[in-house]
């Protein structure tokens, strides 16, 4: 199963990645081989198996609704490349 160039470009857009023409070809080949590998699952007959959404035992794990203070502002913004007015400053999202 080989992905089309357009499919690779679409995935790159969703991932907000800008790829060079060489990279597009490289990832097209790599992604295609990953899909081929995963496609081996299709060889199994799962018609009698109900969908598995989780491998954890079917038991709810819930937390009491009790608030605790979070991080200090200094800690929260510690690794932010840029901060302003108590907030993360980031490149504009509306061009």
């Amino acid at each position: 199963m080989t992905l089309s160039l357009a499919e690779v470009e679409h995935i790159a857009t969703l991932a907000r990645l800008e790829l060079s023409p060489e990279e597009k070809e490289l990832f097209r080949a790599q992604l295609s081989s990953i899909l081929d590998y995963a496609a081996r699952l299709r060889e199994l007959d799962t018609s009698q198996v109900s969908p598995t959404f989780s491998v954890l035992p079917p038991r709810s794990v819930l937390r009491q609704d009790v608030p605790h203070p979070g991080l200090s502002l200094a800690d929260l913004l510690h690794n932010a490349p840029q901060a302003e007015d108590r907030q993360f400053r980031i490149p504009p999202v509306f061009e």
Binding site: P67, H68, G70, L71, L73, L76, R86, Q87
Partner: peptide, 20 residues
């Protein structure tokens, strides 16, 4: 999904209720 207090986001100081 975390214990951060729910604050009025139109009133509270920015990033005053945030955890990892």
């Amino acid at each position: 999904f975390c214990a951060c207090p729910v604050v009025d986001s139109t009133q509270a100081e920015p990033n005053s209720a945030v955890c990892p």
